[in-house]
Computed example of a mutant assay.
Amino acid sequence: MRAIVPMAAALMLLGCASSTMDAARGTAPTAQLKSQKAAELVAQCIQFSWQDEAVFGVDASGYLQPRKSGGLTVYTREAESFADIYPQDGGTRVDYYAQTADTTALRRRAAAATCL
């Protein structure tokens, strides 16, 4: 019973984040980045960099999940920022989305760029 409550809460948050991400994907990404590295390595690096409490404080979060249509997504709580990572032409394309253009979003974009 104790395990059911946290699991249900996580699924509800994922549902909210998913609808926010789907809506954002209907628009152009905030930034589009490219890398010669493998998509999995780029995604893991972005996830790790977004979890850095020294940079993001209490907002440090990064969750990684595969996309149904291929590729991977790294996202924050409530999908305030997220990155879709796709294998492309022997490298990787990163579509970065941010709900707001605040300092935290710019830091997340910069952190993602260091993973290229």
Rank of each mutant, 00 (worst) to 15 (best):
Q88E: 13
V42Q: 00
E53Q: 15
K34L: 11
Q36A: 14
A38L: 09
A43D: 03
L41I: 03
Q88V: 06
K34D: 10
V58M: 13
D95Y: 05
L33H: 02
S69V: 06
R93M: 04
I85N: 00
A39M: 05
R67I: 00
F48T: 10
F82W: 11
W50M: 10
K34G: 11
F82G: 07
A79G: 10
Q88F: 01
Q36S: 15
K37P: 01
A83P: 08
R67E: 04
Y75M: 12
T76E: 11
T76L: 10
A79D: 04
G90N: 15
V74G: 03
Q65D: 04
V94Q: 02
S35F: 06
Y86K: 03
S69M: 06
W50V: 05
P87K: 07
I85S: 01
E53S: 13
D89E: 15
A38K: 12
S61G: 14
Y75H: 13
W50D: 03
R77F: 12
V94P: 00
Q65E: 09
Q65S: 06
Q88Y: 00
E80T: 14
V55D: 10
L33T: 08
D84Q: 06
Y63L: 09
R67M: 05
L72R: 00
F56W: 13
A83W: 03
A39S: 12
D89Q: 13
T76N: 10
S69T: 14
S61M: 04
V58N: 12
G91C: 08
G91R: 03
L64P: 00
Q51I: 02
G70Y: 03
K34M: 12
D84N: 07
R93A: 04
A83K: 06
V58P: 09
A60S: 15
A79L: 07
Q36L: 09
Y86M: 06
G91W: 06
Q32H: 11
V74Y: 00
G90H: 12
A31W: 08
S49Q: 14
G71S: 08
Q88L: 06
A39G: 09
F82D: 08
A43E: 04
